[in-house]
Design a protein around this nucleic acid. Sequence first.
DNA 1: AGTTAGAAGGTCAGGAAAGGTCAAAGTTAA
DNA 2: TTAACTTTGACCTTTCCTGACCTTCTAACT
Lengths: 156, 156
Amino acid sequence: MGNLADRIEEYLKQILEKTSEGYIILQRSELAGEFSCVPSQINYVLDTRFTVERGYLVESRRGGGGYLRIIRLGLGLEGQYQQVMRQLIGEQLSRERSNGLVDRLVEEELVTIREAAMIKCVLSGNDLGGEFRDWDVLRARLMKTILTTLSRDDLL
Amino acid sequence: MGNLADRIEEYLKQILEKTSEGYIILQRSELAGEFSCVPSQINYVLDTRFTVERGYLVESRRGGGGYLRIIRLGLGLEGQYQQVMRQLIGEQLSRERSNGLVDRLVEEELVTIREAAMIKCVLSGNDLGGEFRDWDVLRARLMKTILTTLSRDDLL
DNA sequence: AGTTAGAAGGTCAGGAAAGGTCAAAGTTAA
DNA sequence: TTAACTTTGACCTTTCCTGACCTTCTAACT
């Protein structure tokens, strides 16, 4: 596995391990410079290796003083639970089931009561007056993004 | 965050924090001098960082003895903030504006960082591809419902 | 009172400094 | 020999910074 993408991946994961903040910040062009490659190669690495499925979140900002921010998603106890949850959710999620899941998250003390109330109110979807068709699909996607957000290591 | 605009923003917020009046008065050219930049850079910072959504009001006066006045808008106590927020949200709400509002809720310690991240990720709406049309309208409604939920007395 | 010079701040367009996208060309593994 | 993965480069969007030019206000001088 000596190819460029793998080496960049390795390098990033290494500094990501060492940090206690739960994230690292870097400049795309600078990193590209260190590995003597084109900047878009960095995007390739980020797109293929630092995905949510693999436990990472990437934020960025353009313009002068722009940057890349790679955030670690929890791999510990909470992270495990998060993976299980994702499988439980699947492609569709009914309102009853989502409420059940959220209650369980409260019991496990992974979310507060306030957070739970918020999640439920969003997932209840009283706001889209019939304008959306595939409710259960949307609910599943929303639930997943929320779980992802909650497992961000930089929010602890 | 090493760029000039960010540094000026931070500087201004710092002195704004320290003052007890709730506002600061300064001279554009003087401030520009301190940061060795062109005066219009100050306008850029004010236009992009000290907006109403983020809780600031900027007044100014030209001519001899002219000045800039940056006012920090409080959200008021005991449920008043709900009304203020609703006004700011209005019927439609862009992503930029909603992020500004959420940041402000954090600053006022009305929501936690985790809650803020969750709200942002829901409102960013990466989940409903092009399936929904009036995004800004939906965002406004969601934001209001969330605020209502968060201010429920039984969640404290 | 009217005029005018100087002292503020305001606007806008253009260039620079990031990062993003996409498709074509090159590699590698089955 | 394909099919999947990697690498590159041309072009795009967003954000920042500067400078030239404009508007408003005060004060001093008719």
